[in-house]
Write a protein that binds this DNA or RNA. Structure first.
Lengths: 208, 208
DNA sequence: TAGATATCTATTGTATGCAATACTGCCCGG
DNA sequence: CCGGGCAGTATTGCATACAATAGATATCTA
C-alpha cells in the first residue's frame, strides 16, 4: 500500500494548478475530468479537494461540488495582515538564542534571491520565511501559517509576476536579519509586518 | 441528494466523541466499526476523518489509519496562548463601534453562566466567546480560531469537569465587557488573555 | 416569441468491492 | 523461557458502482 497517501500528492498538484490558474478563479472543479487528468480515481481526489476546502483554497458548494474562489481584493487585504501577524507572533515565541543563529542562513538565501529570476524568486522567498520561522516551538501556529499562506500566494504570484520589487523585498529581508543580529526583535517584527503590508500595497495597484 | 453533506454531521459527531473521550486519547479509529455505529458508509466517514486530521483533532498514520492524539501538557501549554493571541487579534480588528454594541449581550450570556451547571457551562462559554468575536471582519482569522478551539476544548473539558472555577471565569468575562463599554480595548484584551492563561494554569495542576 | 415545463444528460454524494499492507496468534528454534 | 518467523485475519487505501440532484436542452403554451 502507498507509504504516502495519494491525497498528499494530489493536494500539492491541485494547489499548484490553482496558483498558476490552470484551475481558474471562479471555475467549478469537475471531479471526473480532473481525476482522469491526474490518473487517479475520484476517491482520493475528493479527499484532496476536501482538504483544500478546509484550508480555504477551494470552496465546497453543497450539491455542486467544489469551485475555485474568485479573486477578491478585500480578501487579500485581510490575508496579508493576518499572515504578517501570525509570522510576527511566531517570531515572538522563538527563543532569542535560537533567533541569533539564523541571520547568516537568512542572508545566504537573500543572496540567492538577488541573483535569481522570476519563478525561483517566489520559491526562495518561501524558503526565507520558512527558515525564519523554523525555530518556533509552537507547531500549531506553524500549521496555521502553512495553511494560510497558499491563499495569499494566489494573489502574491500575480504580484511577483507583475512588479520587479525583488530588490526592495530583499533589502527588507536583510534588514530583518540585521535586526535579529542586534537582538532587536521589535524592529525585526516591524519590518516583517511592513514587508507583508508593502506587498499588499503593490497588489492593490493593478492586481487581478 | 443531501443538502448538507454527511461529512459535516460526521465531523460534529466525531468531534463530540473525541471531546467526551468515547474516542479515547491514543486510540486508533476503526473505520468499519465507527461507520457501522454511525450508520454510514466508510466513504463520508473517511472524508470527515481527513477533515479532522487537517484540523489536528486526529492524526493520520500512513497505512494505519487515524488515531486520537494522546494528551500532552506541552501541547496544551502552546494551544492556550495561541487561542488567546488569536482572539485578542480578532478583537483588535473589530471596529470600536461594533464592539461598543456587544457588552449588553455579553453580560446576558455571562448571567446565564452564573446559574448554569456543568455541561451547559462550557457551551455558554463558547457562546460568549463566539459573540465576542462575532463582529470581527476577517473570516479567515475566525476560521483559524474555530479550527483551533476544539483542540483546546479537549483539555478544557477535563478542566471544567474538575474545578469549579465558573465564578472566577464569569467575573473575568464581566470585566472584559466592562472594558469594552469604556472603549478600553487594551484592558479587554489583557483580561481576555489572562482568562485563557488562567485556564491553562488550572489545567497544569492535575490535568489528564 | 417569451416563458414555463418536461425530459434527458452530467455530475455529485454515497455505498460497495478489491488488493495490498499491517496486525495477531501460533509454531518453532535457541 | 524467550524471541523470530510464518500463516491467517483485520484493516486500510484506492477503485468502481449506484442513486439522486443539478444543469441543459427541447417542447409546449399563451
Amino acid at each position: 500500500m502507498a507509504r504516502t497517501p495519494l491525497r498528499s500528492d494530489l493536494i500539492e498538484q491541485i494547489t499548484a494548478r490553482v496558483l498558476d490558474r490552470r484551475l481558474a478563479a471562479g471555475a467549478r472543479v469537475n471531479e471526473v475530468h480532473l481525476a482522469r487528468e491526474l490518473g487517479v480515481s475520484r476517491t482520493p481526489l475528493r479527499e484532496a479537494l476536501i482538504g483544500l476546502a478546509d484550508r480555504g483554497l477551494l470552496v465546497a458548494a453543497p450539491g455542486r461540488g467544489f469551485l475555485v474562489p474568485p479573486f477578491d481584493l478585500d480578501e487579500a487585504r485581510r490575508l496579508y495582515p493576518l499572515v504578517a501577524e501570525l509570522e510576527a507572533l511566531a517570531l515572538r515565541w522563538t527563543s532569542p538564542l535560537e533567533l541569533a543563529g539564523l541571520p547568516d542562513a537568512l542572508d545566504a538565501v537573500a543572496g540567492e534571491m538577488a541573483v535569481a529570476d522570476g519563478g525561483d524568486l517566489s520559491a526562495l522567498d518561501d524558503r526565507w520565511h520558512a527558515l525564519l520561522l523554523s525555530r518556533c516551538p509552537n507547531p500549531h501556529l506553524l500549521r496555521l501559517i502553512e495553511q494560510t499562506k497558499p491563499l495569499l500566494k494566489r494573489y502574491e504570484s500575480a504580484y511577483f509576476a507583475r512588479h520587479d520589487h525583488a530588490g526592495e523585498s530583499i533589502g527588507e529581508h536583510r534588514r530583518i536579519a540585521a535586526a535579529l543580529r542586534d537582538g532587536d526583535l521589535a524592529a525585526a517584527s516591524s519590518v516583517l509586518v511592513a514587508n507583508w503590508v508593502k506587498a499588499l500595497a503593490y497588489l492593490g495597484k493593478d492586481g487581478p
